[in-house]
């Protein structure tokens, strides 16, 4: 199990990266944490003439405050996201989702940009990005552009990032209102990709009525999905009136599961709905305590 030969590039600036991508087109591949790409190379399930290592491009690393929200460089390690206080403070869902990604050794190398660009439908970050309407900043030889989450995940493992483009950063805005967030998933073993999971944010007005609901789902479709039926059902309810199990069941309508060795279509639908309900209950409980504390 050894990778095929390739030419290695270690650029130090985004400009050089996109230059290399423009030059080599489909024959080039960015290498971030390597936690998904290198296994595929080792098994020779994929091969590229040119590997463009992003690990020496300093400008792609780090979390910065951005207009009340945050901007996270694509090469920021998952481990750094996990422990970053600004992330925990402003985008709690990212903080809550991160420990579910693989194991600490994986998170020490794996990057948020790699997770989003790889776009595994069972992966945590894509579901969080979708739920929170995150924005991707994308660079290419012809300049910068942005892609909102709703347009980013095109199909399984396919995103708005073209082969000659580089995902540079991800932007998330903070919720400026009483809110509750929760994340959970079911995986076969500790650290495995999820069979099904949910990322939920609930925001209320001062009177405790839900005026913002964000429900992202993983593992239950060809891409991460939003449970719009659930979101719609929540709007306007008082948090204490919402029956999470009941509302969670609506999520089944928003799913489009794919069966595989680990779970059938039917399983993913059932367990996914259960999880949406449970995570919703946790998020609601969060809002209540926050309101109570505040």
């Amino acid at each position: 199990m050894k990778p095929a030969p390739f030419e290695y590039h270690a650029p130090e600036t985004v400009a050089d990266v996109v230059g290399l991508l423009a030059e080599h087109g489909d024959d080039a591949k960015p290498l971030a944490g390597g936690q998904s790409l290198v296994p595929l190379l080792a098994m020779r399930l994929t091969r590229f003439e040119h590997i463009v290592d992003l690990n020496r491009v300093d400008e792609l690393f780090g979390v910065s405050l951005d207009n009340g929200g945050i901007s996270i460089g694509a090469m920021t390690r998952q481990a750094a996201v996990e422990t970053d206080t600004a992330v925990a403070d402003r985008v709690p869902l990212l903080h809550l989702a991160t420990p579910h990604i693989g194991h600490f050794q994986i998170r020490n190398r794996g990057t948020i940009g790699g997770s989003i660009a790889h776009a595994d439908p069972a992966s945590e970050y894509p579901a969080v990005m979708l739920a929170l309407d995150g924005v991707a900043e994308i660079a290419s030889a012809s300049g910068f552009r942005e892609a909102p989450a709703a347009e980013f995940f095109e199909s399984t493992f396919m995103t708005a990032v073209a082969p000659d483009e580089l995902l540079v950063a991800l932007r998330f805005s903070a919720w400026d209102q009483p809110a509750g967030f929760a994340f959970d998933e079911i995986a076969r073993r500790s650290g495995d990709f999820a069979l099904a999971g949910a990322a939920v944010g609930i925001g209320t007005d001062a009177a405790g009525r839900i005026n913002r609901a964000a429900v992202g789902m993983l593992g239950v479709g060809p891409t991460p999905l939003r449970a719009s039926s659930v979101e719609a059902a929540l709007m306007g309810l008082a948090t204490s009136d919402a029956d999470p199990a009941e509302i969670g069941r609506l999520a089944a309508e928003d799913m489009d599961p794919i069966g595989d060795v680990h779970a059938s279509v039917e399983y993913r639908r059932r367990a996914g709905s259960t999880l949406v309900g449970r995570v919703l209950a946790n998020a609601l409980a969060q809002v209540n305590t926050e309101a109570g504390n505040g």
């Binding site: 390597g34 290198v38 290592d53 994986i106 020490n108 190398r109």
Partner: peptide, 11 residues
């Protein structure tokens, strides 16, 4: 702690 099978020596 990292997986050394998922890194290239040159990295």
């Amino acid at each position: 702690a990292v997986r050394s099978c998922l890194l290239f020596a040159v990295q």
